[in-house]
Design a protein around this nucleic acid. Structure first.
Lengths: 135, 135
DNA sequence: TTTCATGTAACTTAAAATATTACATGAAAG
DNA sequence: CTTTCATGTAATATTTTAAGTTACATGAAA
């Protein structure tokens, strides 16, 4: 969504973003409210209002966005009980926990290395290769 | 559940396993049916029947169990669309996909290194340290 | 032939994610 | 200043998914 906003100059309304993303404007506003709290976007009410990027694409990584979205859990797998009394379960949690932590750390470290600018460059390259205009 | 079964000699009924896991016997049977298909457990009907481990703990890894459970998705994050027409989304999917793949590969490779035997050893060590009998 | 256990389909319930409605707030246009 | 347009947000509804339950068939031992 941020990359789409980057292609448009001037503010973009949640309604038009909702059109692009095939969802409801309120869903867009809820998401962007989180991003605004982290200073990634900026919003204006009223006539001519809407949403605008607040940062240079070069300075925003997928990790920043992940944080702004509330650091949602990255793994679909997890412990059955967080602090089990059962000693079997404790052993399992301990072993699996290390694997989970390693996987999550790797994913987030990759996210830290992906900037919106690099994604934007990739997008523009794709634009060149196929004749397809519009995004 | 398999580790609990390892502590008991003789077959264990889905009802008693359901008691341990605080769930319904049918849920247990459904899960164990998958494990049986991979040869991890063995079941017997009728009087004195129940479930039994079919393999040595040393030869079973968390990865084997993961496969037997149907290789459920490991990540909570994913692509919005698998094969999007939108070029922005293609660029995003491409970059995130590499990160996803790396994280999943790492997690599964860790799973391959965790045997039930190692978990069982850890469990028995925990038994020693605290005075708590029973599992 | 009774009892007990698995095997499985069909159904129900519960939880979570997602979407919608409704209305308040604020800013620009006329 | 009042109409229009857009965000802000609470409350509600819908959808999807996972988990649990019921019901009954199958098969084995007592």
């Amino acid at each position: 969504m941020l990359l789409h906003m980057a292609e448009i100059d001037g503010p973009v309304t949640s309604e038009s973003l909702a059109g692009m993303m095939q969802t409801n404007p309120v869903v867009i506003r809820r998401i962007l409210a989180g991003l605004r709290k982290q200073g990634l976007v900026h919003s204006e009410k009223g006539h001519g209002g809407g949403w605008r990027l607040a940062k240079d694409l070069e300075t925003v990584t997928l990790y920043d966005i992940h944080i702004a979205l509330g650091s949602p859990g990255v793994l679909a797998l997890g412990h059955r009980t967080e602090a089990p009394g059962c000693l079997v379960e404790q052993a399992v949690n301990n072993a699996m926990g290390e694997a989970f932590d390693a996987a999550e750390a790797l994913l987030l470290s990759r996210f830290r290395e992906i900037t919106l600018a690099s994604l934007s460059r990739d997008f523009h390259q794709r634009m060149q290769h196929c004749g397809n205009p519009g995004h």
